[in-house]
Computed example of a mutant assay.
Amino acid sequence: MPFDPKNVIELTDAALAADYTRVRRAASAIVRELAKAGDEKAAKELRSLVRKRGVPLKASGYVESLPVDAKSRLPLLEEQSWPDVPVFLNAEANRIFHDFLRDVQHVDELCAKGLASRLGLLLSGPPGTGKTLLAAHVAAQLARPFYVVRLDSVISSLLGDTAKNIRSVFDFVPSRDAVLLIDEMDAVAKLRDDRHELGELKRVVNTVIQSLDNLDSHAVVIAATNHPHLLDPAIWRRFPYKIELGLPDVDVRKDLWRHFLFEDRDEAKISNELAAISEGLSGADIEAIGLTARRNALLDNRPLDIASVVSAVLHSSSDKSALPRRDALDADHKKHIAQSLKEHFGLSGADIARLLGVTRQSVYGYLKQEAEAHDGG
């Protein structure tokens, strides 16, 4: 399809000037045109190029000017690349995610009819549930730059400077047609009736609220928090779209195992069994276990050791994760795992044999030995 000539001219001029910000902005506009025309392959390739973050331009001496803290001179934001791993959501979260994207993509049409709302998305949930990853996917889907607030720079030892830093962040991002993520939102937007907070910190919350109110209808702001109960109610009202990212349900866990352990190969039975025994683990836990098992297999030049994956799952909990061992599990270890899988999850002998990589006869032997030892005790 023919591109808007203005975007092609802008892209060429920006490239010759070694101005990465303008290059990225013009390229992102072309990505949107490609996606709108249905050419997802070309859009994906161009997104991938933009994701490289202008390394040749930076090598030529270009440095993007970011707002900085007046005292420390540290940048208040950092630009992060679009993600190269998928995001896995349950049905409700996926619905809200796509509703939000649709409204952003049609904001001009909605504004013309007086139907636009704030383009604010609030993500809540425990660590490891994919809040930052989901925010990055929003930026990627919109082909916009992705900026993350650096709280270590924004929150100054001089409380008055914190409010100034917040204003600087909100002044900068709309000019870049970017997606802004404020992680750990509760750090700057706590309940204003908290008796333990100083008056100046309450003024910081007011600054956040005022800055959100002053954004135009095209600005995309995402807030994330591990502690939603700490947020001021006024903050909740300024984010019409809300997604609670809890621990993955069984269907999401199946998808996570299939992707991170089996590289999206069809290993339905084992994925289903792993999903059943990994309740309580976060997506980050499953990713770490799956990728570690694959690394071990690659470096040792051997097939995946599913038994070591099962052992890691059984030794993990919501507040502590274990990783697969590199050495093979001995028979005694497998015997205890077999008993646990039978007792706590009700898996059949065939299911246990598949997970441990042994015969069903071996499993029956493990269970018999365990039963005899229990009776003897």
Rank of each mutant, 00 (worst) to 15 (best):
L298R: 11
L256Q: 04
G246K: 12
D285L: 08
A284K: 05
P248F: 01
F262K: 09
A234E: 02
E263S: 12
R237S: 12
A307N: 02
T292S: 12
G283Y: 01
K254Q: 12
G280K: 14
A288Q: 11
Y241W: 13
D264G: 06
K242M: 07
D266Q: 15
A307P: 00
A276D: 07
F239C: 09
R295Y: 07
N301E: 13
I235V: 14
T292L: 04
L261Y: 01
G246M: 10
G246V: 04
F260Q: 03
S308G: 10
W257G: 00
P233Y: 08
I243C: 09
D305H: 05
R302E: 08
E244K: 15
F262Y: 14
A293C: 05
R265M: 13
K269D: 14
V310S: 00
N301R: 15
R295N: 12
N272C: 12
I270C: 11
E287T: 08
D232P: 02
A268E: 15
E267F: 12
L261G: 02
F239E: 08
P240C: 09
V252D: 04
P233W: 08
V310W: 00
F239G: 05
L245A: 01
R265H: 11
I289E: 00
G246Q: 08
D285W: 08
D285M: 13
R253W: 00
V250Q: 15
L304I: 07
E267I: 11
W257C: 03
L261H: 02
I286R: 00
P248R: 07
L299S: 11
L281S: 02
S311K: 14
F239Y: 09
E244Y: 14
P303K: 05
L291A: 06
S278M: 04
G290T: 03
I277E: 03
D249Y: 10
L299V: 13
G246E: 08
I270Y: 08
T292K: 13
V309Y: 06
H259G: 01
D266G: 09
L247A: 05
T292D: 01
G280A: 13
L247R: 15
V250S: 11
F262A: 09
I306Q: 00
A276V: 04
F260T: 01
L298F: 10
R237A: 12
E287Q: 14
F260K: 03
E279I: 08
L291M: 09
D300E: 14
D232I: 05
A293T: 02
A307L: 03
R258L: 09
N296V: 11
E263V: 07
R265V: 04
V310C: 00
S278E: 04
I243T: 01
N296A: 12
